[in-house]
Amino acid sequence: MTATIPAQTGGDLPAHNITISEFGAMKALAILSQSGKENAGVRVFIKSGGCSGYQYGMAIDDRELDGDTIVHDRGVKLLVDRMSLPLLRGSEVDFVENMMGGGFTVHNPNATSSCGCGHSFRTDGAQSPDGEGSGGCGSH
């Protein structure tokens, strides 16, 4: 069973919500329109690894899997699997541009530490899961 939740931008957000910034939504909608996938959304997920323990992942996905939470925010469909949801509660997907180019990032209030490149994080200061993630930012 999937859960579909409209995001509430501004005001108090439900604890499970994940949102997307205005600039992030603009970039995501442009990418989604070029994907050729009908009814596609942005899948946001967490996997073990990275220099801080967990690593963010994002992909264009036109599948709604059993157990997914689906959030509609600023015209973008965000899909989050049940294993990633607890680690992404209250997070905002954003798009940042810098001298190295640009890309999507996650502003995660659950992260207690992160690596310098912003692609991986730790939630409680504990060791990386399964002993992974001991390398530097280049080891993603």
Rank of each mutant, 00 (worst) to 15 (best):
M1V: 13
M1Q: 13
T2A: 13
A3Q: 07
A3Y: 03
Q8W: 10
G10M: 07
G10Y: 09
G10F: 11
G11Q: 07
G11D: 02
L13N: 08
I18D: 00
I18H: 01
G24V: 04
G24R: 01
A25N: 03
A25R: 04
K27Q: 08
L29S: 10
A30D: 12
A30G: 13
A30H: 06
L32E: 01
S33H: 07
S35K: 09
G36E: 04
K37A: 11
A40H: 04
R43D: 04
F45Q: 08
G49K: 07
G50P: 04
S52V: 08
S52M: 14
Y56G: 02
M58K: 08
I60N: 10
D61Y: 01
D61A: 09
D61M: 03
R63W: 05
G67D: 10
V71W: 03
V71L: 05
D73A: 15
D73Q: 03
G75A: 05
G75S: 03
G75M: 06
G75C: 06
V76G: 05
V80A: 04
M83G: 09
S84P: 08
L85G: 05
L85W: 05
R89C: 13
R89K: 15
R89V: 02
E92I: 01
E92K: 02
V93K: 03
V93L: 15
D94A: 11
D94C: 08
V96A: 15
V96C: 08
E97T: 11
N98C: 05
M99C: 12
M100Q: 06
G102H: 02
G103N: 03
F104C: 02
V106R: 02
N108H: 01
P109G: 00
P109A: 01
T112R: 13
C115M: 11
C117L: 11
C117S: 15
C117R: 11
G118W: 00
H119T: 11
S120N: 09
R122P: 03
T123A: 10
D124Y: 06
G125K: 00
G125L: 05
A126N: 15
A126H: 12
P129R: 14
P129D: 11
D130E: 14
G131E: 07
E132C: 13
G133N: 02
G133H: 02
G135P: 11
G138L: 10
S139C: 15
S139G: 14
